[in-house]
Design a binder for these strands. Structure first.
Length: 271
DNA sequence: CGCACCCCCTGCCGGC
DNA sequence: TGCCGGCAGGGGGTGC
């Protein structure tokens, strides 16, 4: 579920609801996540006012006023953050209370996590090292310098969070389709123009996806329980056998690193 | 460093 | 109808 557009959608739904409010309580209902949650870790945060929620790649960072401490949240595959009264309660792991506003974290597969700590330590140890895909500093030169020496496929490389933070399996396919680059192209065979074109498509696709509140294939919800609409705009993802939006050739599916990749065999040629 | 593989966990879907 | 295998948006670890 949650790649950059979904995480940004969650951030935008959450921030206006709790910004400037004081964290008054945390209840742990199901501590088992990727890293177990312990209630006492959060005691230092009680009485702190939420300054801002930032996003880096697929990670959310809660910042508090007058504090060097922060809270990092990652949604894994099936994590959801809902405000007020979530209609489902089966997989609620923890709840924040910001004054009168309740925020619940739900995660059936438990691949997500929440980690409190000093911001500098979290940056060093938890947050991914790659540049955020929508950073103002992102450009074709950055990707070229960081990828063009590699032998690996461009699709796998775009999902490497240590280089580029934010893309996952859906948007990597979507972006390469828009850029007319074959997902199995080896990084070292792509020239600077190709990387520039990837960045152009990446910016375009991610912004459209954010405008559409991300992708809700089966279980992505945000805010008060709304769903995203980008799945209706998929160019290739989950569309094997359906026509390419640019040339009507039938979309194909292949497996790369054990994960599905979708592409147009006519538009996307290996250089 | 790259890469092929495995793991974590639950839910859902299609085939038999 | 029920069982079973395969697959799903995530990251991380290992051994070569």
């Amino acid at each position: 579920m949650p790649e950059l557009p979904e995480v940004e959608t969650v951030r935008r739904s959450l921030q206006p609801a709790i910004q400037g409010r004081v964290l008054t309580q945390i209840s742990i209902l199901e501590p088992r996540l990727r890293f177990p949650v312990r209630a006492e870790q959060f005691e230092p945060y009680f009485g702190r006012r939420l300054k801002k929620i930032r996003r880096h790649g697929k990670y959310l960072v809660m910042l508090f006023q007058d504090s060097e401490s922060a809270i990092v949240i990652h949604l894994g595959m099936t994590g959801r953050i809902l405000i007020a009264q979530p209609r489902e309660t089966k997989w609620v792991h923890f709840k924040f209370l910001f004054e009168t506003t309740e925020v619940a974290y739900i995660d059936p597969r438990r691949f997500g996590f929440i980690i409190p700590g000093k911001l500098e330590a979290l940056k060093k140890n938890i947050l991914p090292g790659g540049m955020d895909a929508l950073s103002p500093k992102m450009n074709g030169e950055y990707l070229f310098v960081n990828l063009a020496h590699r032998k690996t496929s461009i699709k796998d490389a775009l999902m490497n969070q240590a280089v580029l933070a934010g893309l996952g399996n859906i948007y990597a396919s979507e972006i390469l389709s828009d850029a007319h680059i074959h997902p199995a192209s080896q990084c070292f065979n792509l020239d600077l123009d190709a990387y520039k074109s990837i960045v152009q498509s990446m910016t375009k696709i991610l912004k459209i996806a954010i405008r559409n509140k991300g992708t809700s294939m089966s279980d992505f919800y945000y805010g008060y329980g709304q769903q995203g609409k980008y799945q209706n705009l998929f160019r290739v993802y989950d569309r094997q056998g359906l026509p390419c939006p640019d040339c009507n050739t039938l979309i194909e599916k292949m497996i790369q690193s054990n994960r599905s990749t979708y592409y147009c065999p006519l538009c996307q040629k290996i250089p």
